[in-house]
């Protein structure tokens, strides 16, 4: 069970695709001006990433090494096309707000990256959990930044107007860059502090043990 816990923590925190690896930046910057589209993009990626990880992991022994990248691209492109049809039919609002970025999920480095780095080396359940957690990490990060940008940039949350005060810049690409940059900085700083505290504690324990042994 420890294995899955590690995959989960990696996906959400230590290898968070948005804040730690800084992958999939184009849809992130393009869509965080609205919390709704940011979350929609995140959830779409969760589904596509989980499915692509499962498929690629299941086919990892069938696909010859030489043509693996083209095969992955075809599988991902198929899933994206399917997602596009599905959203257009059943969630047209989200389909409209994602715009061109929906098709660009194909070239989102997170998906091909996870296929290459994880799915083709692990079993199906592990790959599925990894895909889901990485996607979830992406979704949480996007939604968080979407809320910040939309609240300050438009004075609304998920489309509901809350206040009149707004800083229009934050709803533009310039603001997206700024918020994304600051969020990465804060995230890495906090992780850094926690790690350091852990290390200090471990060192202290080690020293106490040593002292006790010496005594």
């Amino acid at each position: 069970m420890n294995k899955y816990k590690k995959i989960t923590l990696d996906g959400l925190i230590y290898q968070n695709p948005t804040f730690m690896l800084v992958l999939g930046t184009c849809p992130t910057l393009g869509l965080i001006s609205s919390a709704f589209s940011a979350m929609g993009m995140g959830l779409t990626v969760v589904v596509i990433l989980t499915l692509s990880n499962i498929l690629i992991s299941a086919l990892r022994k069938v696909i010859p090494n030489a043509v693996r990248i083209p095969c992955y691209i075809v599988i991902i492109a198929t899933l994206v096309t399917f997602a596009r049809m599905f959203l257009e039919k059943f969630v047209p609002d989200l389909y409209d707000s994602l715009g061109g970025f929906l098709a660009l999920i194909v070239v989102n480095c997170i998906i091909l990256g996870r296929a290459e780095a994880f799915a083709n080396k692990h079993t199906v359940p592990e790959a599925a959990v990894d895909g889901f957690m990485q996607g979830l990490g992406f979704t949480v990060a996007l939604t968080l930044m979407g809320i910040i940008c939309e609240f300050i940039g438009k004075g609304s949350l998920f489309g509901y107007q809350i206040m009149d005060f707004k800083v229009g810049m934050l709803a533009k690409p310039a603001g997206s860059f700024l918020v994304y940059g600051i969020c990465i900085a804060v995230f890495t700083y906090v992780i850094d502090c926690i790690e350091r505290a852990k290390r200090v504690k471990a060192n202290k324990l080690a020293r106490e043990n040593l002292l006790r042994e010496v005594a």
Partner: peptide, 20 residues
Amino acid sequence: NVFKCLVTLLCVLLVSGVFL
């Protein structure tokens, strides 16, 4: 191996095409 690669790729493409 070349043949195997080609067949796999074509199969994947075909399945995707039919599915879509």
